[in-house]
Design a protein around this nucleic acid. Sequence first.
DNA 1: CGACACCTTGAAGAGGTTCAAGAAATGTGG
DNA 2: CCACATTTCTTGAACCTCTTCAAGGTGTCG
Lengths: 267, 267
Amino acid sequence: MSDATADAAQRVSAKTVASLHPLPVATRVNAQAIKVACSNCNLRELCMPVGLEQPEMEKLDELVATRRKIKRGGNLFRNGEAFTALYAIRTGFFKTCVATEDGRDQVTGFQMAGEIIGLDGIVNDHHTCDAVALEDAEVCVMPFDRIEELSREVTALQRHVHQIMSREIVREHGVMLLLGSMRAEERLAAFLLNLVQRLHARGFSQSELVLRMTREEIGSYLGLKLETVSRTFSKFADDGIVEVKQRHVRILDTDALRRIVNSQTCQ
Amino acid sequence: MSDATADAAQRVSAKTVASLHPLPVATRVNAQAIKVACSNCNLRELCMPVGLEQPEMEKLDELVATRRKIKRGGNLFRNGEAFTALYAIRTGFFKTCVATEDGRDQVTGFQMAGEIIGLDGIVNDHHTCDAVALEDAEVCVMPFDRIEELSREVTALQRHVHQIMSREIVREHGVMLLLGSMRAEERLAAFLLNLVQRLHARGFSQSELVLRMTREEIGSYLGLKLETVSRTFSKFADDGIVEVKQRHVRILDTDALRRIVNSQTCQ
DNA sequence: CGACACCTTGAAGAGGTTCAAGAAATGTGG
DNA sequence: CCACATTTCTTGAACCTCTTCAAGGTGTCG
């Protein structure tokens, strides 16, 4: 089964989550030809402030300068590169990772459609991490100068930018909690629940997902070795909590995963 | 030796770092009586954008609504409380920590004079972590409405707010790297180097510091148990890298600490 | 079809945790 | 100001989780 057909299988009825539902793949193919406009983008609710008046909405259409396609394995940006823009993911899946001089590296997050990437670059005008596409992807390029300019005029955008950055800070608090105080099973359970919840918000299944990353990348994100990730998947499968066939995961018992996260064996 | 005298002992010649040097304790006592004005605050370079014209500087003096004192052990804010303001630390030392429903908690950071606290609250209009004073402290209260208003008018402030949030995101990337891929000795070495570097930027010694937090709080931050923190301190002392007497730490060999952080034993 | 990347599983070992006891500092109340 | 209670820190020994090393299996792509 190819990933494309898997995607289709994963997707649930659009009715329930119509407003968040991504465009069907077919209509995206010539995206660059279509006028770049947030106002008719179906991911709008994920990237943009909601409840805007028409004139403000039109202003925001100036935000996206262009779109950019990144092939699987390609970099959206690299550590050290000049920072010029934030990116809204239209399609595809990314990882971000930081590295030390001595060659260790750490996946700091996985990002999917509707999420904003590049915030790390603002503070020093250079990116401090790598953003790598884990599948063919397309992003909206939003020059940061323009964001700052527009958010002085459109209060809702200003607030929105602040919220996106704050959300990222809060998300990272959660990762710190995970890395600092959870055991392997808890980490993987929390990871799966988080992924499936975000996919569900985008119109995919609550129980089935296709991992876009390797065991090693999951391990890096969770502070575990790839063997431990693999063993933990096997353990979950043995316990009847999930079905795992390579990167295809079906969650059979969501509550069991929740219980594992809240196990609190220690203290 | 009281902590106050220890502080004095720690402080190095003001000449080298005059612009970052905090006010002597004596002049702070009646702070609330003195007009609240960033333009004559000695921590200005740490909290505020630099190189402002006089008229802009005067506008920014409206930013700080009031000051607030927090006793040691007291909360600046708690998880769940409404978010109304960011806080610039004038004096004192804080920790921030998040908690799970099942009672685990994780220190997400330690903050000192000149640093901004409360960014977690922006996204959902209430705080998602606790901020606890580890010593008697005073903060400048900056209502967030006012920050947003002013940063629409003063470009330098807008940029500054973005940088502060981005800096926090980058800092947390570093913590994730530490928690995800370092061993106990590396974590503690990195922690000490980071603390002493920040203290040095505030006019304190490069080699001597007084820890404001317990071994347990250090452990929580570093993803270790307090016994491991204690043992690692002892190990460093045995190796002649530091002198440790309770919370008083003297770094004897900074390069050794740096080497430990970049050891990269594995891979 | 063969090369390569990725995943799984086993066995041994290391690093950190847990439990426990005692020492050192700190705070409190008489 | 001293005695006592409490908190914090240190250290030892046993244990456990995760890592390391190794080998073989599975899937994918040119």
